[in-house]
Design a protein around this nucleic acid. Structure first.
Lengths: 339, 339
DNA sequence: GACTAGCACTCGACTGCCGTGAGTGCCAAT
DNA sequence: ATTGGCACTCACGGCAGTCGAGTGCTAGTC
């Protein structure tokens, strides 16, 4: 009973603070929400909530503001799932439908997510781990320069130019190409090493050095480079806020420019299947202590291959962001699985 | 004589304003620069400069601030070229030296430029117009899906998945592939149309529809998609400014997210060979009226193939940005030509 | 025991007022 | 043409006073 109301109060505080951006007081609270009790009672509840660490006052005689812990409780126990409007549903499928290739799907998704949530959106390229090799291509650019191209069944294309330690003739290259192709096609990207090693053994000592480079590079672009790319969009949404959040965007923008940081952010998120929320100090990076991440994995045929999400101020609209993220993740999974 | 001093005054005003960020008055001016005359004289000059539109006062009894026109005069007639420090030179070549492929060169360049100028950096991918086709690859993904890959001699790789109107057998596809390859290899990307048309005519009516799609797509990725990608970096530098500029970054960030806008920005810049400066309202986009662009074309073997540059507030350090942009453009050209 | 009404208290935000000083424009003198 | 000097403007910072939203506490009510 009592507990129930306190949680309701917390919820009301979060909602009001998110929408107005200003500390919320007991009186305003009873006016805007029909809580059925007087402001004095609310004050008692608020004092208790503050005691427990869910809310805080910026200064005496000001309203209360949720703490990271308050938001955490809000998302964990309180936020009902906001259903998508049909307009939004249509927007999503329309938006993603016209994509012509993987790059297009990614950039469309990011735009869509940024637009739906009005936050910064992140979308990670599907990992090659679960993917299989559809084709590899070796093109000689000059006597000692090769272009290696690896095409996965996700539609993803990885390429790399390499410098050989010694020249290789077109003829030998042709043999190598054929042999590699048959060894590798259909294999999982993550399991290329044994197959490639076998090919290496087959060929004689003469071209061994060149072959080593080729194989090492193939492994690298198949495994090491996996899931390295993350597309970013909607940065301008950070500047929408007129409060103290927008006052120093520098650390946030800095963090968002570092692919490494983004990978760490999404890496931990793409494991589970539900929507993950990381609030304020729960983030792994100091620059992002003032922001929250709402993320989700997405996949292809029931396997999670990468992550996506949005980043915004801790006082963001969690329910809305969560539904948007989940929906886009679902649509994206569907599209990938159809390919 | 008189003219000379006025210009010197203008230069001093721009320099001081850029470094302090605050309106500069006559007295501070004579103190910081050895102009050899009294502040009263400077005041007269300043009145004249204001009359002519080079400077303005934010309000009565405040110092002067350069107008867009003032900056324009500054860059056109006043700014001496700042030589690079040897440390900077080394940073540039070190930074660009380790690149493994085109993507890497691009992303390194953007980081470098952002770091050198402490502004937002833009680097456009080399255009395919002047490039020639090194190789094309057609991979069948399913009965009616093909992956087309086009590899240019710049090392750039373009790809696209297409849906065929009707199935095509591996055998026929093999013929088509061979024929297309020989028709196209070595040709200029911009001149593919006639060669491709000839191939289209050779093949009989049966597979005509499929071929049309293939050829159309090839043309598209060779020509229409040319120079469409622009990499962006150093956005966090926009938030460094603590003045009114940082107060509303939203329009700027918005503009920088639109590839179309960036293309328009760099498009006009990459024509000439020197460094181009576009100040405030000279920009083609309203959102960027508060910013300036310092850009330059860069090329490969004397031909301009794309542009790069930096975007920052109008009160930026033009000489420094200009030298940095020019140097990076030169180094980049050299690297491209070596490939 | 839970809720409420009321009261005293706190303290940031806003206002009006002044003194200060940086900066200007103009004029007479060199 | 340049300069010294002077009167004027006006943003800015500090200070006092008021206002009001918000709080905590206590005594009273159901």
């Amino acid at each position: 009973m009592l507990e129930d109301r306190r949680l309701a109060v917390l919820r009301a505080i979060v909602e009001d603070y998110v929408s107005t951006g200003e500390p919320v007081g007991s009186k305003a609270l009873v006016e805007r929400h029909s809580l059925g009790v007087s402001s004095a009672t609310i004050r008692n509840d608020m004092a208790a909530l503050e005691e427990e660490g869910y809310i805080a006052q910026p200064h005496t005689s000001a309203g209360r503001v949720p703490t990271d812990m308050g938001y955490r409780a809000f998302v964990d126990r309180l936020s009902g799932v906001k259903p998508l409007s049909s307009a939004e549903r249509r927007a999503i499928s329309d938006f993603l439908a016209g994509a012509v290739d993987l790059d297009d799907v990614m950039s469309r998704s990011v735009r869509l997510l940024a637009q739906l949530t009005r936050q910064v959106a992140l979308v990670q390229y599907p990992s090659l781990v679960q993917a299989t090799v559809r084709h590899i291509e070796i093109v000689s650019l000059s006597e000692t320069r090769l272009l290696l191209v690896l095409i996965a069944d996700t539609g993803r294309v990885e390429q790399r130019v390499i410098e050989l330690p010694a020249p290789i003739t077109e003829e030998v290259l042709g043999q190598v190409r054929t042999r590699l192709l048959s060894a590798v096609t259909g294999e999982r990207c993550s399991d290329l090493a044994p197959a490639l090693d076998r090919v290496a053994e087959e060929f004689a000592g003469d071209i061994q050095p060149q072959l080593v480079v080729i194989i090492a590079t193939l492994l690298e672009i198949a495994v090491a480079r996996e899931e390295q790319r993350i597309v970013l969009g909607g940065t301008a949404n950070l500047a929408r806020y007129r409060d103290s959040f927008a006052a120093n965007l520098e650390p946030v923008l800095e963090a968002l420019e570092e692919q490494v940081v983004l990978l760490r952010l999404l890496g931990e998120v793409s494991g589970g299947d539900g929507v993950t929320v990381r609030i304020g100090h729960e983030n792994p990076v100091e620059n992002l202590y003032g922001t929250s991440l709402v993320g989700s994995g997405y996949g292809r045929d029931e396997t999670i291959v990468a992550g996506l999400g949005v980043v915004g101020p801790t006082h963001m609209d969690y329910p809305a962001s969560m539904t948007a993220v989940r929906s886009v993740a679902q649509y994206l999974s569907r599209i990938l699985s159809e390919t």
